[in-house]
Design a protein around this nucleic acid. Structure first.
Lengths: 338, 338
DNA sequence: CGCAACGATTTGAACGATCAAATGACGAAG
DNA sequence: CTTCGTCATTTGATCGTTCAAATCGTTGCG
């Protein structure tokens, strides 16, 4: 029933040319004459020919595959952001002829072991890394091996030696803070993560700078906690009752949801309504009407893929540094909470 | 510095055997003598040899790749369940030597176009499908092409012709309902989706049967709405104020979160506390303390992968039907809401 | 007219593995 | 002692593609 899969030779015979000419039509069109090309293209579509990636890969050592580690199962919302990011990378990759392969790992060492296998066995073209952190073993290993990669997230701590795309957390919290300032609030509190995480510190600085720019003193208006809803509740209590905060900006939606719960409890006991703004636009935020700062994930993914193709086509030479460190602006999603 | 990538021939020379013997060590160990095998294995590990998948694939027509479509971006929590499922499939696949490739599509037709490319160009071994629905074009297309696949989700409507794994939604809502019955509640309401969706109807039936089994009348205790938080709120109002419900089981976490918000508002106005149970164990549920029915995603994924390897190894013949339709039991995650 | 240069196309070899068939060694059976 | 079968191993061919070099036909120019 289903005839044999057409190969480049089948197409060549049908178009009355040689294998190589068909190959040229596909890979070096400028070398073939228009009329020949037309004949070949006709044969290709009549037969429904698609080049066989494995055969091509065997010769060229390019797989047209990029790989990403999927974030481990986690209770918090951050996982969902990364999952959406994987989706976006797959989508952008397809547009440029790449497929996306996902793999799992429990920690950095495990992830590096995964790279080894993927590189040796599958000849992956490139990697997209997420969740960069201080002293990241992965990036230094990949650099040493000369493997093309881009990170979604800046290299925290050391100076940027590799290509990256990130979202400007500082700008995000600044926008949020300014919205609250514009609404007339003065004592705007910040619920953050413990000092020392690159992302957390960055996000906090946006809030802090905005307050200072407005001539306000941020000290005593920041409380930190681990990334759980319960901690968010606790931090909110502390900020509101002890330090008199009258609006809240949070480093994450998880903490913000805790804060929101605290405010709503308080309202139900006759307290004043108080705005709360989160960060990440997680599903939970949408569900509960939390105003939050959304990362432009599709754009981030598209940029990552663009950088990778640049890298693969031109190598690391002859590059214009500025274009390989991309900081994207987040945007505020306004819902009922603020 | 980095020496050439070792090939099967390099290994063969080092172990003083032929290519084919090395190949046999890897693919048909019973054919080689223990001492030869030891020598070959030593050479393999000394050189760090890994077989080249593309070369192998060119000969065998097996890619050791499975593909899954990623669910489109969506605001609701269902997306997050499927993303976690992708993760789990990748994880189980790795254990059996498969890598997982993800792709995107906007609808069934688009997804089928994706299959064509993946099959022709990449020679994918198999597919995992999610989100089965009535009149699913994808499954019939794949069957017609003779492509191995497994669905996560039963074939709704028509009789099961293909292999599937699913979670027993009916059992899930039954457990939830029985828990509420055991706590002494009688008027247990159900917030569902409009009739006609396989999943929704199935989940509803669990609640309904449990009520009947307890000698209670479920009529007038079910209200349906689209899958949004606002609708959940509305349905809860209707069930509680108009039909006197005193506990709620919901078809999804999204609806349950709306119901939970309604109950909490009510409590703050002096109303009675009332249990609410959701479905899916989404991140939002964890964040807000919603008791919910969790799907055993890792187990479901592992089963899908197992079925696929069965299929690939033994074909569709000589099969014992019962084992190829797997219904897994969900479990209740108890949190503060019920 | 002869020869170099060029463009379009074809031919031979190679990528790294597996399959199918051939070879060699060894014992058992006739 | 020959023959045959079996087991372990080797050799030759092949998968579908691209690279590198060869071929063929035109054109340009001294």
């Amino acid at each position: 029933m289903a005839s044999e899969r057409p190969t480049i030779t089948t197409v060549a015979e049908r178009a009355r040319v040689s294998r190589q000419t068909v190959s040229n039509v596909l890979n070096a069109p400028h070398r073939v004459q228009p009329e020949t090309m037309a004949r070949v293209n006709a044969a290709i579509s009549e037969l429904g020919y698609r080049p066989h990636r494995a055969a091509r890969q065997l010769r060229t050592h390019r797989s047209n595959l990029i790989a990403m580690r999927m974030a481990p199962f986690s209770e918090d919302d951050a996982g969902s952001v990364l999952d959406r990011f994987v989706h976006a990378v797959a989508e952008s990759g397809e547009r440029l002829g790449f497929r996306t392969l996902v793999f799992t790992a429990t920690d950095d060492d495990d992830e590096i072991a995964g790279y080894t296998d993927l590189l040796n066995s599958y000849e992956l073209d490139a990697f997209v890394l997420t969740g960069t952190h201080h002293r990241d073993l992965r990036t230094s290993w990949l650099r040493r091996q000369g493997v093309p990669f881009v990170t979604f997230g800046r290299p925290w701590g050391v100076r940027a030696k590799h290509w990256w795309v990130d979202v400007d957390g500082k700008a995000g919290t600044a926008i949020a803070t300014e919205r609250l300032l514009a609404a007339g609030h003065r004592r705007i509190g910040f619920i953050g993560w413990p000092v020392g995480s690159g992302v957390g510190d960055d996000r906090r600085s946006g809030w802090e700078l905005s307050l200072r720019a407005a001539g306000l003193d941020p000290s005593r208006l920041v409380v930190t906690g681990e990334n759980t809803v319960a901690e968010g509740y606790r931090c909110a209590v502390e900020l509101v009752t002890e330090h008199g905060a009258e609006a809240l900006v949070c480093v994450s939606d998880t903490l913000a949801l805790g804060a929101l719960a605290m405010i709503r409890d308080r309202v139900s006991r006759g307290g004043a309504i108080m705005p709360v703004i989160g960060f990440d636009d997680s599903p939970g935020a949408a569900a509960l009407g939390l105003t939050t700062i959304a990362q432009p994930l599709r754009e981030a993914a598209a940029t990552c893929v663009r950088l990778l193709t640049d890298y693969l086509d031109n190598g690391t030479e002859n590059t214009d540094k500025a274009n390989h460190h991309v900081l994207l602006a987040p945007n505020l999603v306004i819902r009922s909470s603020g």
